[in-house]
Design a protein around this nucleic acid. Structure first.
Lengths: 346, 346
DNA sequence: CTCAAAATGAGTTGCGTACCTCAAAACACC
DNA sequence: GGTGTTTTGAGGTACGCAACTCATTTTGAG
């Protein structure tokens, strides 16, 4: 009734003996250094695979000497979600220093492609890995590819640049997030008919556009009785969002649901309460101090959330695994779309 | 615009010099070995804290020599959720062997206190850490405490034994899970009045009892119009659950919601469909092959889920951190209550 | 066959810690 | 002041690998 996993106590020396070569040759193969005949390479690799040999991480880490340096490129604005990510990076400091890893945070204007691209280029050569909140733009894409070509491991965070050659994306599928929001609004509203409002930062932002797309998909296919009103753009600002929504609420008396795609939550909540329309189902994004309060008060009904702590840690782990040449535990690093309601507030 | 975390390149030698003692003495302090004057201990600790020195994990690991052995004590029955946990442990094998960690799975009858306690005692001395799915019973509690006293690190998994001196619990808060289920059933049902059914494995199981408690709490306080029927006990078996539920559905024509607390999901779904009562809001637990299908078909409306992969990995990481004397990243190891609906199926 | 280039062997050093031994120094007690 | 005990120093070895040097062997081209 017992099963054992792992624990090969093999070392490089054993592999060398097995393959009938010297330690030096095994080392050359392992780090694809030149000067080994293809045939010999194959023999060594065969021996490695035969015993499914894994170099001892601790020994490798100790032997390399120099510490690994990672950079996190984050937006300079006062975005609470991004601040949470940075805070969670801070909480890892003990973990990081016990592994002799250094993580540096670089703040820049990620919304200006040329500024962002410039910041990325400035990092070249100094870091083993870079995690970035990036805009999808040709010059950013080029900067990312340059980093990759220079041997730096690159991870996109929260917002992806799929057309680049980045090694990994740590973040959610925003279309699925929008679909989830749609399903929640539709189901929680209950009614068969009525109108639904959407407040977004800007439809020009990739993640917002994707969320709206997913939301509309679900509304059209599953809640045909609910009609979606044109998207209000609030630029993630409280005042702007409030005014736009107040106007809309005044015009339509039969709004039963509201999806707030980005920030500006404070303004949205204010517009709702001042219009005394607290029966409207209100679904938004992210768990912050504010949305937590709104959920507890019953003003917000659900928040779609991506765990910032998980994103911070996943980015570090992925960069480390990439740098070490270890496989990535995809299941572990995947960021899930959390539905947060009052009773499962984290 | 840049901030740096960590990367003290200090070594034990530096600390020794700082404290004006030899390496041997620092070593004695670090591992609380005897033979050091209290005053000297303080001086060394002061030096360590002054520089917030952290021993290099890789070096420590390498120097230990012997590999760490962990045991996972799992239920012997064919529980799909537990099988998933074991499967995810299997996926970690590369990660484990690169760190020279061995994980052994021991299957036993965790529902029989004396058998479980016996299995635990049999592990004594052989392992650095043990993770277990445990029953809360005096003799189990005693066995756990014995392990702890013998220096073994102990983590309870999925089901806790809070009265024991186990070092950590990896699992969810079941009362909160029940509350979440209640909120979902209530909200999704929409109606102001009607009846709600509960199917559980047994009210004698701690986690089931806690879930029911939380569920009733929410129903009573937030959905006074919905009346909860007496709990059906299906012993987590399909047939039993089906028959019990079929009878109940026949008796009450106004059932609008159903909470399935444990397994037996297949039977519950069958009873619902054969009674042609697919309008009933159906909330259950865990994402398995079956519940995934039911969610996609619209038979189930939501599943409360705890991520088995996360639990498996968290248990290993916590055991490792405990064994190394490292701090635990509580935020990371916390198991969240996931609400899974069709559109955010993982 | 000759010679240069390529491939390989053999060896060294160092990473930072754990764990061990033995001798020397400091201390406590009578 | 002598004795025994406690505390401390000094040093060594080992862990598994990275990274390097240098000598030697093998290979292929002409």
């Amino acid at each position: 009734m017992a099963e054992t996993l792992t624990a090969t106590a093999l070392t490089l020396k054993d592999i060398a003996r097995e393959a009938g070569v010297s330690l030096a040759t095994v080392d050359r193969v392992l780090h694809n250094r030149p000067g080994v005949r293809p045939d010999t390479v194959r023999r060594v690799q065969a021996a490695i695979e035969r015993h499914s040999f894994q170099p001892h991480v601790a020994a490798a880490e100790l032997a390399r000497g120099r510490a690994r340096r990672f950079a996190f490129v984050m937006p300079s604005g006062p975005n609470p979600f991004m601040q949470q990510i940075e805070a969670y990076l801070g909480e890892m400091s003990t973990w990081l220093s016990a592994r002799r890893l250094s993580v540096e945070t670089v703040r820049t204007d990620v919304f200006d492609p040329s500024v962002l691209a410039g910041s990325l280029e400035a990092l070249s050569g100094d870091y083993d890995g870079v995690a970035m909140v990036a805009l999808d733009h040709p010059s950013v894409r080029a900067a990312i590819n340059d980093l990759v070509d220079a041997g730096t491991k690159v991870v996109t965070l929260v917002s992806d640049v799929p057309s680049s050659r980045r090694h990994h994306y740590v973040g959610i599928d925003n279309i699925a997030a929008g679909r989830t929001a749609g399903a929640l609004v539709g189901r929680l509203a209950g009614q068969k008919s009525g109108k639904v409002a959407i407040v977004a930062g800007s439809q020009g932002l990739r993640d917002h556009a994707e969320r709206i797309f997913g939301f509309n998909q679900v509304m059209a296919s599953e809640f045909p009785g609910l009609s979606v009103l044109p998207v209000l753009e609030g630029r993630d600002e409280d005042d702007r969002s409030e005014q736009a929504l107040a106007r809309l609420l005044g015009k339509h008396g039969d709004i039963v649901g509201l999806y707030n795609v980005g920030a500006g939550t404070q303004g949205v909540a204010k517009a709702l309460s001042e219009a005394a329309r607290d029966k409207v189902v209100f679904v938004g994004h992210d768990v912050t101090v504010l949305t937590r309060r709104l959920l507890l008060q019953g003003v917000m009904d659900a928040a779609i959330s991506q765990n910032p702590g998980h994103e911070a840690r996943a980015a570090v782990r992925v960069l480390l695994a990439l740098a070490r040449g270890e496989p990535i535990l995809r299941e572990q690093e995947k960021i899930r779309i959390d539905i947060v309601m009052r009773d499962n507030l984290p």
